[in-house]
Design a protein around this nucleic acid. Structure first.
Length: 307
DNA sequence: AATGCAAGCAACCGCATACGC
DNA sequence: AGCGTATGCGGTTGCTTGCAT
């Protein structure tokens, strides 16, 4: 179906944001809340496209964002989550309060994948690399050797995608595709009312959240009663084939197994508790990894990451 | 001090999907 | 049911910075 570009490209600013633009955007969102990204720039007096505003806000300006200093614990959790979820950066970010999907993605591409490779682990499959040369790294080192081109675009359909497809054929790892829960639940939550759920946004909740959860309080009010329901809202898992795929994925992690009661996994901690979120999750996962008795528990843990 | 290269990261782009009409 | 719009996500690009030569 035809689709209008997200913005008229003419006359709009691009590239790095200036402090003035940041201030305008912040001020506007403080006053009016998030959402309505398309019309926001105009109302806020910004010469940016809505997409750009959203991204800037989500990845940089939100008050709850932690920047830099990714801890070894976070690293480890990212690696483990990646082994379960693949490149679902927003889902991974959703379990790391204050981290954005972009930050995690960048961190992965620049540090973690490299580290895994150095440790003899394939960063894509998380399996031990054979003696074969490592798969080509698509990050800077390799890319910089090529002349810079203005255009990208269909890269996915071309070389990169072909390479990826080839890899997937070899590894046969079927990842579940997250879908919006409203497709599965009869009582869907309306999406674009910027005044709804004002209290549901946890100022410490992760990025990668949907507009739904982000509406409202980004300013630290209502820090009690926080919830992470956006993932309940946004992602559920209701495909049979893909279920099997996911199980298949888990089965490849043979050592995985039993552990704690996963009841309540969908209940995330309040902001007061969030400091322990990462630690708890990590511990839970670690227990599962080390307990060889029940694969089901691990599966349910993994599913809880999606639901 | 100047230059080139690599790393890091912010931002852009296209696509997928939900939703409203 | 079909179409158009809004939003979110992941892949990719390109600018900035730091380091090596």
């Amino acid at each position: 179906m035809g689709r209008a570009p997200c913005c008229a490209k003419v006359g709009l600013h691009r590239g790095p944001w200036t402090p003035k633009e940041d201030a305008l955007l912040t001020k506007y969102i403080q006053a009016h809340g998030e959402g309505q990204w398309r019309s926001l720039p105009k109302r806020a007096g910004l010469l940016r496209c809505g997409k750009s505003c959203r991204l800037r806000w989500m990845n940089y300006l939100r008050p709850d964002i932690k920047r830099g200093n990714i801890t070894p614990e976070e690293d480890d959790l990212i690696i483990r989550m990646h082994s379960l979820l693949g490149n679902r950066w927003s889902l991974i970010a959703g379990r790391l309060p204050g981290r954005t999907d972009n930050e995690i993605k960048n961190h992965w591409n620049t540090h973690l994948s490299k580290r895994l490779r150095n440790q003899g682990t394939d960063p894509i499959t998380h399996k031990k690399l054979s003696s074969l040369p490592a798969s080509p790294d698509r990050n800077h080192a390799s890319r910089k050797k090529l002349p810079r081109k203005k255009k990208k675009g269909k890269a996915r359909e071309n070389g990169a995608q072909a390479e990826k497809d080839e890899l997937e054929k070899k590894t046969i790892v079927y990842l579940p595709k997250p879908i919006r829960i409203s497709a599965c639940l009869s009582s869907s939550i309306p999406r674009s009312d910027s005044n709804q759920n004002l209290n549901s946004f946890d100022s410490n909740s992760a990025s990668g959240s949907t507009s739904q959860e982000k509406k409202g309080n980004a300013w630290g009010e209502n820090n009690n009663n926080n919830n992470y329901s956006d993932y309940n809202y946004n992602y559920t898992y209701c495909g049979d084939e893909e279920d099997q795929g996911f199980v298949g994925l888990l089965e490849e992690e043979h050592e995985l197994v039993n552990g704690s009661d996963m009841e309540g996994q969908s209940e995330f901690p309040t902001s007061a508790e969030q400091h322990g979120t990462l630690e708890k999750l990590y511990e839970e996962y670690f227990q599962l990894l080390n307990n060889q008795e029940s694969q089901e528990e691990l599966e349910s843990f993994a599913e809880s990451l999606l639901v």
